[in-house]
Amino acid sequence: MLETAFFNLFAGLSILSGMGVVLARNTMHSVMFLIFCFFNAAGLFFMLDAEFIGIIMILIYVGAVMVLFMFVVMMLEVNQAKLREGFLQYLPLGGLIAVILIIEFIAAAQSGVFTEGVKATAVHISQQVNNTAEIGQVLYTRYLLGFEIAAIILLVALVGAVVLTLRTRKDAKYQNIAAQVHVRKEDRMRKVRM
């Protein structure tokens, strides 16, 4: 009973905040709604015994990705009214997609896959089972190759981003801290015989 209540809370709030992302007039408010939405998604993960994914969701999405998002949004001068001009011309297409999705959701819910069998009656695994250790064990043995490939792709993306934005300005003053620390008395002073 309590679990259903919490599910409804998290699910309802994530839908509401998702709507808030789209409907908010202020871009910053949209970003805040998106953060709140991520929180509720993390709550849903916790209820599925996936505490590792829930925490990582908060750590990566809320703690890192959204901060950069907010950074960019903060510094942009977004004119919402201008963006909303001709907003309605997308209504037929968007509405069509939404209607199709809703029909699919209802059909899936009615199909009986989720109401009976293993998924509906799955009990919670005991507190002794450590999700994080289990994930680590499969990730670094069975799926090692895929994991490493993903890591290398991310590394390449990282290096690429640095290379694209790196430029040395000739007119800026740079300090070489090592040279400053290693400076000797003789480098700065000169004895003059008068």
Partner: peptide
């Protein structure tokens, strides 16, 4: 179980 990650998050 994920206390350390929780603190970081």
């Amino acid at each position: 179980n994920v206390g350390l990650l929780y603190i970081m998050a």
